[in-house]
């Protein structure tokens, strides 16, 4: 009788352990709120933008690919060469601006915590974002580059394939990082996501948008 009781207790303990020790993604992410905005809406003034310490995460589940998030949370890298808000990281010598070293995310999670945090972040979605709009498949890279580099000059602000401006996020590995549907939405209307973002809205038709999202998705 006693033996059976011990066995039942041990079994119950065994079953309870995984849930008791499973990392709580929300709790892991909560301290990130000291720098990242974890709840909307986005700020609406330049003063508020300049006070931003780190990118908004309240729509992380719409924006990111989960696999990338899990890796990044374990080993954060610099995505914005001039920091979250480029104008806060300018060093002016004479009449020439250069970039002062931007602050890097100090948090580094274990594999288990990163997976739990990513699970939670993926729940932070924008309900209005259309999904299934990006049609990823075969595309003309030459046409895409003509549009992106020559016509829209995205490389003026973004580093693309190792060359380009510093005020906006690098496109290195961007295909791993971003959800193509979010890219479609952001390029179509950056101000929907961030009213004062320093990127001009483009008037592109769907065929052009598909070239942009396919090219970006290919950069892995």
């Amino acid at each position: 009788m006693i033996k059976r009781g011990i066995t039942v207790f041990a079994l119950a303990l065994l079953l309870a352990v995984p849930s008791a020790f499973a990392a709580d993604g929300a709790a892991i992410v909560k301290p990130c709120g000291s720098c990242h905005k974890l709840a909307g809406p986005a700020v609406k003034t330049i003063a508020e933008v300049k006070a931003r310490k780190a990118p908004d995460l309240f729509y992380a589940g719409s924006k990111f690919n989960k696999d990338w998030l899990v890796g990044f949370l374990q080993n954060p890298t610099v995505i914005r060469p001039a920091g979250t808000v480029y104008s806060n990281n300018i060093k002016t010598t004479g009449d020439t601006d250069t970039v002062a070293a931007p602050a890097k995310c100090a948090s580094k999670l274990s594999a288990g915590d990163a997976a739990a945090a990513a699970d939670y972040l993926m729940t932070l979605k924008d309900a209005k974002m259309k999904t299934g709009v990006a049609k990823i498949g075969e595309f003309s890279k030459a046409k895409a580059k003509m549009l992106i580099i020559k016509t829209e000059a995205c490389n003026g602000c973004h580093s693309i394939e190792g060359n380009g401006g510093l005020s906006c996020p690098t496109w290195e590995g961007i295909g791993k990082r971003l959800n193509p549907d979010w890219v479609y939405s952001f390029v179509q209307d950056p101000q929907y996501w961030d009213p004062k973002v320093w990127m001009g809205k483009r008037d592109l038709d769907d065929a052009s948008m598909q070239l942009v999202v396919n090219y970006i998705a290919s950069l892995k």
Binding site: I46, V49, K50, A82, Y86, S87, I90, T92, G94, D95, T96, D97, T98, V99, G156, C157, G165, L166, S167, K196, W198
Partner: peptide, 19 residues
């Protein structure tokens, strides 16, 4: 300071960080 400086520079001389 937010939209123009990235290319035109803080001093407005065309020597921003993207230039």
């Amino acid at each position: 300071s937010l939209y123009c400086v990235q290319c035109h520079g803080t001093a407005g001389t065309g020597k921003g960080i993207n230039a």
